[in-house]
Design a protein around this nucleic acid. Sequence first.
DNA 1: AATGAATGAGGTTTCATTCAT
DNA 2: GATGAATGAAACCTCATTCAT
Lengths: 227, 227, 227, 227
Amino acid sequence: MNIHSLHKIRLFSADLKRWVIKKLSRNSSDKYNLILNAAIKVFAENGFFYSTVSQIAREAGVADGTIYLYFKSKEDILLQFFNCRTQEVFDRFRTEVEKAGNAREKLVNLIRRHLEEFQHDRAMAIVFQSEARVKSRLNGRLDKYVKDLSKKYMDLVGEIIELGQAEGSIRKDVYISLAKRLVLGSVDEVISTWVNTGGHYDMASMAEPLVDLYFKGIGSTKTAAVQ
Amino acid sequence: MNIHSLHKIRLFSADLKRWVIKKLSRNSSDKYNLILNAAIKVFAENGFFYSTVSQIAREAGVADGTIYLYFKSKEDILLQFFNCRTQEVFDRFRTEVEKAGNAREKLVNLIRRHLEEFQHDRAMAIVFQSEARVKSRLNGRLDKYVKDLSKKYMDLVGEIIELGQAEGSIRKDVYISLAKRLVLGSVDEVISTWVNTGGHYDMASMAEPLVDLYFKGIGSTKTAAVQ
Amino acid sequence: MNIHSLHKIRLFSADLKRWVIKKLSRNSSDKYNLILNAAIKVFAENGFFYSTVSQIAREAGVADGTIYLYFKSKEDILLQFFNCRTQEVFDRFRTEVEKAGNAREKLVNLIRRHLEEFQHDRAMAIVFQSEARVKSRLNGRLDKYVKDLSKKYMDLVGEIIELGQAEGSIRKDVYISLAKRLVLGSVDEVISTWVNTGGHYDMASMAEPLVDLYFKGIGSTKTAAVQ
Amino acid sequence: MNIHSLHKIRLFSADLKRWVIKKLSRNSSDKYNLILNAAIKVFAENGFFYSTVSQIAREAGVADGTIYLYFKSKEDILLQFFNCRTQEVFDRFRTEVEKAGNAREKLVNLIRRHLEEFQHDRAMAIVFQSEARVKSRLNGRLDKYVKDLSKKYMDLVGEIIELGQAEGSIRKDVYISLAKRLVLGSVDEVISTWVNTGGHYDMASMAEPLVDLYFKGIGSTKTAAVQ
DNA sequence: AATGAATGAGGTTTCATTCAT
DNA sequence: GATGAATGAAACCTCATTCAT
């Protein structure tokens, strides 16, 4: 009996436990999501590059090789995350926007939903905030999704602003592409701050004050009027 | 003490002087910066994790081993970038802010300088935007610099806003921490967009319109007044 | 609890049984020993520091990476050698000692077995003689095993000598700790010589003459008596 | 001013001190021995393989390159140690042996001197005990010296034993080559133990008891007589 | 479909040695 | 002779991926 054997025995009981839990709890068809969720969790903890396929497999309770039955590669997992997970989320943004009657409400709904979704799934928020901008060989394909998503978001905000201009609630002389970046940038920053400080407070309630700031600006009425 | 001793002492101090001059004048900074710049360029092209030390060495025109005379590790290069490069830049931000007389001008100066600096060194901009948020083992020490810098920036914006409130140019009821995130977030987004679209247009000229947007908001005067 | 549930439970326990059997029966010991033996052979030829992991892998007929499934590092291989291989051998020493009835026979059995074991596995002998004393960073952990083993051996010899003194076959005024070093040192030297000269002659047969020398000394009877 | 600069400045004062000490204390001709001694000290601390040429240079207060003016390579330093240092020591053994009148005294003188020399220079003792047996590519040339030295020692002991037999103080039926290994092995073991336990006690005084043990053996007179 | 032992390419890093000053 | 910055070969080790079971 050597150290190697001893180590194996220790692992054995941990594995046994995992095996029982897995057998008892799973209906064996949703492996794709099981792995994807495990991966997001692992990526959120260690970052994509410092996460290993084995870690993901362990977290998911499957064998390393199993992952390759559902994903082409480690990079593909991240790709799928950006592709389908964030698409789903974005679709819910749209629904929420459509519920509102005017530009301001639409913007509040969009941002509130955005903050809610990210607040609800912190691992997703971390991965999104951390990995979306990473410059990497993934870029070719990752960019495709990230830029697409970003564009959709921008377009959605653009539509709302144009609606507001038509309604008369938003100034006609607003430089739209700048306004869009103002919105997306500040929401992004709010989420980043939330993520970096541990994610313990309620972010969604910041939607209303944020939109208020967009509309009124920080200038005093007098100043604004004078200009 | 005889003449012989005296002579020895004279020689000694001549040698000492020569030794000190040599030690102090060797501008090892040359190669340090040579390598750092090469690394930033390579990181900007491939991303930190997909860059190899050999690539950096080739770009700098030195041997692989030479890099380890100036940096502890590959990670250390990125750390040094965030530590000294960005500190230098930030110091110039402060100078620019101090030049202006009122809050609005200070904000314009800060943002214009920010955009100018990043525009001036696109590789730096790319690395900063890409790697600063990456969740990694680096984080422990990288975060130290990134968070520190971010805090300094936030504090600077905070001071400006408070000044504006004292001046009467900024509303007293502005939720300061939100306003700060509005500013940092939108500037960040402007830079990211610039980087992602190839960095071919003039970003610095967007400082004035951006600040205008902060002050006046996007809301039409009527709406703002009504609320 | 219905029939369906019952069926599931039956299947479950069948699976559980299969899983446990599989886990326990995999004889990973095979490859562990395959690699360990290959390493000992390579170490014996080149010395630990001049042996490369690739050489060991080639000798074992596995890929370089495979080695790291069974050993933490190159150093760990040497550590495992000292830990388990030499422990096994030492246990056989003890058994051999217990077989004998008196001190002299015990000493002969111990030494004969010692010489036999090393003679039987020349690579082991070489590695043991060469690497056990090496001053290195390994020392921290290597020493643990080597000193422990050395102490056990010393204690065993000490017990035998004390037994001899009780029996009356060994002088009461013998400085025990010196006598122990006499025994261990000379056996060590006999093995070293055997190793260095190519290991072609029978070492085990030297046990009896050696012990004879210990007991009678080199002095002529007359001299001994006179003193 | 970055971390790199700071580090350099810290090193500067250490270097300055070293430079002054060196200039003041040395007569610049005995570099060979200066380096050799420094190397022995470093080898004793870290072992040959974990010692770097830079460490030796620092310990000697010379530049790395200077070492190669006096030694062909790192290995050559160890070689020179075994070649000249131990030869010198061995020559003193011979002188000591010649001083004595009979075999027993000669043996005591030899061993006492041996223990004294090693006790006097612990670093030498450590390096000799640790590195002499290391199986390495050095072997080709290192062995030459080590084996030669070992043979000389063995021959010296052999001569003494033969003298003793002629004198009548040593049994005629002693298996000489075994007796030689008994002597060398036990002295070696005594030194190893002394080195490993920190080298704080007086080893030289063990020469007399050791030789006593060689002559009288451990057996009780009665037993010895009976056999 | 699921497994996980085995693979081996390729990365980071060290350090003995050289050579221009 | 002396220096020490620069070199680059070569080592250890990791881990994404494969494939026989």
